[in-house]
Each structure stands twice: as C-alpha cells, then as structure tokens.
Design a protein around this nucleic acid. Structure first.
Lengths: 133, 133
DNA sequence: CCGTATCCCTCACGATACTG
DNA sequence: CAGTATCGTGAGGGATACGG
C-alpha cells in the first residue's frame, strides 16, 4: 500500500500551484457547494437561490456565482425585460461536477447519525483537559 | 422541473442550523478534502501527510485531523514507542465519504482543460471594466 | 428585481517557539 | 517525531446603502 506511482495526470490538486486546486475550492467551498447543489434541481433566479441557500449574503452569492460562471460550471441567462429577470443554470460541465458533489452531500447527510454518535464518543473520552493547578 | 417535493430527510445541509453543514465543511474544506484524499491511498503518519498535502501548516493539519477524527472519519493510532509514531487512517465511514470526494476531485481534475478554456472565454469577453477617466 | 460598492470586523491562517 | 501555545495579519464575509 505504498504510495502508488500516481498516474502522471496533468492536473494534481495536491500540489499547491495546480489551478485545479482553486477550482476545487470554488466547487467545495462553503457557498459554492450549496449553490451547485441547489441548481442541480433546475434553474433558479437570484433571489430564489438566495432563499434556497439559507444564510448566504447577497455579496457572497454574487461572488460565488461569478466564480462558478467563470469556471464554466454555471450559465447566466439575463432577459432584458422589466423588471429584469436573470436565471442561473448548470452547464453540462456543471451538471457533471454537481452530480458527484450531490453524491457526497447525500452521503454525509445519510450518515449524520453515525457522525453525531462519533462526536459524542469523542467528547466523552475527553471531558475536558482542564488544567487544575 | 419545479423543486421536487424533497423527501423529508432528517438532515438537510441547505438549512443553516443543520449539523450536517458543519460536517460537510470539514469534509470539503480546503484541508479536509485534501487530507481525506491523501488518506484514501492508505494510512499515513503526521509528517508524511504534511508532505503529501502541499502547503498545509502543522497547525492546520493538526486541527483538520482533530475535526475529522471527532466526526468519526479518521482513526488515530498512536504507538507509545520512542520516537513516537502515530498513524492516521480512514474509518469505514471515512472511506465511504472519501470515495465520493475522490470521484469529485478526479472529475474536476479531469475537466480542467474545459474549465481553463471557459475562464479564458470569460476573461476575454470582459477585458476589464477599467474606469478610464 | 438584480445586482455592485463600501465599510468594518472577525477569525482562519501562517510563523514561530516550545514540550513530551 | 508529533504535536501544543501564542501572536499578528489580512482576506473572507456580513451589513448596509445605492445604482440600473
């Protein structure tokens, strides 16, 4: 089980300099992951998205969407109507990534009982390391 | 394609208060994701891990490992030898999660050319909004 | 309705030093 | 080797106000 000789993939997220690390951070980031997850169900408007992703600020949502659009994961469709209407939806690339992401999210959600149990065990074993001098 | 009526899962990462959101952040966080990814190949010692996850500081690695251990994703095996030897490895739960995570990482790595192309297109379309007064 | 601009503050993080 | 302790910084992110 020594480190397998790593196929020489052109992009390696483990190295600090690789651009894939930045994209991975957009995708897995606090708001990026939830945004992609929300859009997987279908296209949404700005404020719909904002309501769906509980807790996100306008600023962060805007910023997140820009990053995802720039990376080619999200498509922005603005209609020049009045009042303005803008829809966001996943690109095919975005769908592909979001699919993996959703699998991860569901996996975590589905095993939360185990996680919570593990936490309780961990915390009990270390009631506190209170320095008692 | 309206929002499907959401099976009433007990844990919903989209709501701010759900504990699953915290765990998702441990898993997808900058260092959490890389740490889980590295451990997927096999158990590693602290400094091996540190070298594998390019750029992580001692402090952040330590902190990350604690969070993952507490969530029951990583097991810490300390041997009371001298010099001390501590191995970290994924728990079965950790393996399950890391598997999904790795699928995501590989997906991103494998599509980086498309991402980079999208970025170039995006940046060209907006050379810069330099205010030129 | 759909954002961008500004202010401001927290806390995540890195650097450094030290212990078992 | 395997960490903990302490401190300083700046980027991340919330609140608010304003523009198209």
């Amino acid at each position: 089980m020594a480190t397998a000789p790593e196929q020489d993939l052109p992009y390696d997220v483990f190295s600090r300099a690789c651009p894939s690390r930045a994209t991975l951070e957009h995708v897995t980031g606090r708001w990026g992951s939830l945004t992609l997850g929300a859009l997987y169900e279908g296209s949404l408007r700005f404020n719909e998205l904002r309501r769906r992703v509980d807790g996100v600020s306008e600023k962060m949502l805007s910023q997140t969407l820009h990053a995802l659009e720039r990376d080619g994961l999200v498509h922005r469709e603005a209609q020049p109507t009045n009042p303005p209407r803008v829809d966001y939806e996943l690109t095919p690339l975005g769908r592909e990534v979001a699919e993996r992401l959703l699998a991860l999210i569901r996996s975590v959600e589905g095993r939360m009982d185990d996680v919570l149990a593990a936490r309780r065990r961990y915390d009990e074993a270390r009631p506190e390391e209170s320095p008692s001098p």
